[in-house]
Design a protein around this nucleic acid. Structure first.
Lengths: 238, 238
DNA sequence: TACCCATATTGAGGTAGATCAATATGGGTA
DNA sequence: TACCCATATTGATCTACCTCAATATGGGTA
């Protein structure tokens, strides 16, 4: 990769408006590029980082799809999130010197690495950037509060419906079809994320299929009745 | 409250080292005081803020005890956290213009209000402060990942044991007894936080009591065997 | 193309925790 | 002090989801 390419990673990036530079001026984006970002590609199945690795950088997903997994001492793992392009990886480790979870590419992917030291310096120079980052962290906290509601109060059907609608919306924000898309993760990953077993995920998908809400063929998904799915998001009286 | 008092809220605060000013120089703490903080007291049962209120300030718990509750459209609520002195409230709303959850005082409490606008300006002036704040946000994200593990993968007994040990540690970090303390919240609050029903919480407490791990008398708690409690934190083979 | 192995589906039966219900307790207040 | 109502305990039953098991499917590779 040439120096010129290196310098324009963010400036010429197709997802610039989804990513950290959103709202920054061209000059500011240049500064970001010059100081911090370089691309790394990660093969499907590979770890971007693992618990215990030294923490130095944040990563912005440039393309592809990741999951983050928290592993308990006794070996149990919990999928804590799925990240797609424009989203940041590594926020959970800023408070530490080492990574606190694993992140794995679920398809061939690319990320932009951002030295966190340099990022903090740059945040001092650009109030814009710091503000944007504060909001990103806050949004992540709020997202997790919703996850806690899901895990703590919802029945399995509501959990899956909520999860699917979230995927739909995130695809659409990226100008990808929210109607037809592919699940990048296994039933087991979905189950872990939602706090249910893979068999339950499979049964629920079959049920939604039989009810004409979705068309499921392996990991290919077509949403046939989004309103019905939204209804399944809420507790039904009875 | 006199101006002099106002100006020394943080500087003379007993929990300064637990709170936002930790690691700041005296001069920096003065700056923090002069620009931003003033105390507010909140009666037991009162809301510090409610979902939909305009978001303007962060709050640092000065004394007392709070819970944060996320309410779903259909009326279900989820307790997303309990906050004690030195901890920040309002982080989840930074990304928005309005509050995104309710926070309620579980005993007579006091908080320091911090205008977030001014806080961001000050963060530009003091790299220390911004760095500390970045870490606080990150720690909150990591805390929630652990909650997701708890809610997604643990059995009810493990959840309660984990919760109790967390309370023990937080009391000790505040130089309060971790052996004997009082639960500030109802069984229902605990159940909501842990994703189980209040009857289950009650039964588990009775079980721990019968097994000699705790002494429970209403909300008075004495930890008799912390090691045994720690064991209950992990899945048992069988 | 054919094979293989990870992944997914579907069924049958078991169980942790929910639900419903009937007391008990104790902190707040008059 | 006595009363009251929110909170907590405990028991009996129910059920959503788990577990175990058998089979199907399909993407990757030789």
């Amino acid at each position: 990769m040439s120096l010129a390419e290196l310098k324009s990673v963010c400036g010429s990036c197709g997802i610039r408006e989804l990513c950290l530079p959103a709202g920054l001026s061209d000059e500011e984006v240049d500064l970001l590029d010059q100081h911090m970002s370089h691309r790394i590609s990660v093969r499907k199945g590979d770890y971007l980082y693992r618990m215990g690795d030294p923490f130095r950088s944040l990563f912005a997903v440039s393309s592809g799809f990741f999951k983050t997994v928290l592993v308990h001492e006794d070996g149990r793992g919990q999928v804590t999130g799925f990240q797609m392009m424009g989203e940041l990886l590594g926020l959970e480790a800023i408070h530490s010197t080492h990574q606190v979870c694993d992140t794995v590419a679920l398809e061939d992917s690319a990320v932009c690495a951002i030295s966190f030291d340099q990022f903090e310096q740059l945040g001092q120079l650009m109030r814009n950037l710091q503000h944007r980052f504060n909001k990103d962290m806050s949004r992540e906290i709020a997202r997790e509060h919703h996850l806690m509601l899901l895990l703590g109060s919802m029945r399995s059907e509501e959990r899956l419906a909520t999860f699917l609608l979230d995927l739909v919306m995130r695809h659409e924000r990226r100008h990808q079809s929210g109607e037809t898309f592919m699940l990048r993760m296994t039933r087991e990953d979905i189950g872990s994320y939602l706090g249910i077993k893979l068999e339950t995920v499979s049964r629920l998908l079959s049920r939604f299929h039989d009810e004409g809400i979705l068309e499921v063929r392996g990991r290919h998904l077509r949403i046939l009745n989004r309103a019905a799915l939204a209804q399944r998001t809420e507790a039904s009286e009875s």
